[in-house]
């Protein structure tokens, strides 16, 4: 799903975006690990060490499935509005959601 990695200027990356690869200084020393969230504190620390670009998952690709899931959940909130607490219907909703997300991909 998150298959495209891009290097973006550190000041433009959204807060708490996950790093897609480890970030190292010119000597090869690890500054931040893969998957680490880019908090304000980490951002400042990296900038102080001269880092200007950081590897993140392409937000255009990464946000699409998320937005699609959100839209689907809203649709199902409406379609299943009469059965919000019925266990069988909740299970049905889950498999329909999975199926439609897979189909959309």
């Amino acid at each position: 799903m998150l298959d495209r990695i891009v290097y973006m200027p550190i000041e433009t990356v959204a807060m708490n975006a996950a790093l897609a690869r480890p970030v190292r200084d010119p000597m090869g020393r690890l500054l931040a690990g893969e998957g680490q969230l880019l908090s304000d504190r980490l951002r400042v620390r990296l900038q102080q060490r001269g880092v200007t670009l950081v590897p993140v998952h392409d937000p255009r690709v990464a946000s699409k499935p998320h937005a699609h899931r959100q839209a689907l959940e809203r649709t199902f909130d409406h379609l299943f509005r009469h059965w919000r607490l019925t266990p069988g219907m909740l299970q049905l909703r889950r498999i329909l959601t999975e199926h439609r997300l897979e189909a959309a991909q």
Partner: peptide, 9 residues
């Protein structure tokens, strides 16, 4: 309509 009937177990 725009609703889902109850699935019969």
């Amino acid at each position: 309509d725009d609703t889902i009937p109850l699935l019969s177990e």
